[in-house]
Design a protein around this nucleic acid. Structure first.
Lengths: 206, 206
DNA sequence: CCATAAAAGCGGACAGTGTTCACATGGATG
DNA sequence: CATCCATGTGAACACTGTCCGCTTTTATGG
């Protein structure tokens, strides 16, 4: 009985070596993360099963379950950064761009709640994984540079950091509250809420 | 060999019935949560052991591990609400009070990171536990009413909700980023960051 | 081209988990 | 005093992460 074989599944049942198990595990992990909401319920053995490989095989590519989750989080940060970097109306320095970044942030969280939560989970955020720290730092750098470009000389360095902190906090907080279903609101209201928060003047503080 | 016996431990090794297992489990759970940072690492069996009781005994008081965690979260919401309700300089309607609530929120998160995370974890926030929903709603009500009192007629209902959303998002986001150690900052800087965010004019949006 | 080393897979084992079950205990109620 | 019923127990089940020794494949060097 063949299991339905997704793209990341072992190519043939008779091939001993998988070929590209590393990325297959990543893909399977992301897929399971999307489908199965809860982070703590994602099992290393389950990922191995999805790829058609023994649990022990995973350890040839990731030193632990945490390392695998870390790799998933890195992928998440990359995708989020990409989503924020999409050009908006061709311009890259207007306040509109700042709003766009905030919108992209919240939308990403809503579209990938489990992945988003994983990215900021102590399971991985506490680890000193170099790739993870780099990918996360990219996000902060983008935001601070965008704020710097928009605010220009109107804000000194300290002011910029303050504005960046406020922006990030607000956008991050809204994302968390939304995906945790703390805000009991209709779907149709979500967009309005996002707009209320990504207002450039609010983000910049003037 | 006697284990060190905290207050919540079974009173005597020879007594069959515990007496007040329910609250003993809560106390032990909170204690373990504080000590052992990671939410997903807190084990029902571990809590049972700490109280000196068999794992199955827990199920006489909580229908599942999730139910136990839910009860812990409820306690968390109660404590947070209490912390926010402390009178500040005797006054209860000034903008200072709004800042105080924000400060209390972030401070609570920093002081009880695991509990705070649990309160907003999908493990419990997704459940329709009545007690939990009530305790959480209390928080929102307090905030909206405080904003209403401070802003007075200057804000219509819609404006108040918008301001409440912004305030909560910002304070919640800062809390999360802080306890997730995403903001690589010195301890001494934390207070300044909090102040930058709980500024009344920022919270109210004018 | 073949021997041999390294890489990448496997099954089995171990301790630990949440949960359920039949059963034991003992305080409260009649 | 007898009898319920809430509250405890211990054993079992299926599952988990992780390690171990072993097998299979691929790559490498003579």
């Amino acid at each position: 009985m063949l299991k339905q074989s997704p793209v990341y599944a072992k190519k043939s049942a008779d091939s001993y070596h998988h070929g590209d198990l590393q990325s297959a595990l990543l893909a399977a992990g992301l897929e399971i993360l999307e489908r199965h909401g809860n982070i703590s319920e994602i099992a290393l053995r389950q990922v191995a099963r999805a790829v058609g490989v023994s649990p022990a095989a995973v350890y040839r590519h990731y030193s632990s379950k945490e390392a695998l989750l870390s790799a998933l989080a890195v992928e998440g940060f990359r995708r989020l950064t990409d989503a924020q970097s999409e050009p908006v109306a061709g311009r890259i320095v207007t306040p509109v761009r700042l709003s766009h970044m905030g919108r992209a942030y919240v939308r990403f969280a809503i579209s990938n709640p489990s992945l988003f939560r994983l990215m900021f989970s102590p399971l991985v955020s506490g680890s000193r994984d170099a790739a993870l720290m780099f990918a996360a730092q990219q996000l902060v750098d983008n935001l601070e540079s965008a704020i710097g470009t928009v605010a220009g000389p109107r804000l000194a360095t300290a002011g910029r950091r303050k504005a960046a902190l406020r922006s990030w906090s607000m956008v991050h907080g809204l994302s968390m509250l939304l995906i945790d279903q703390q805000l009991k609101i209709a779907h149709s209201e979500v967009d309005r809420m996002i707009e209320a928060v990504v207002d450039p003047s609010v983000m910049l503080g003037f």
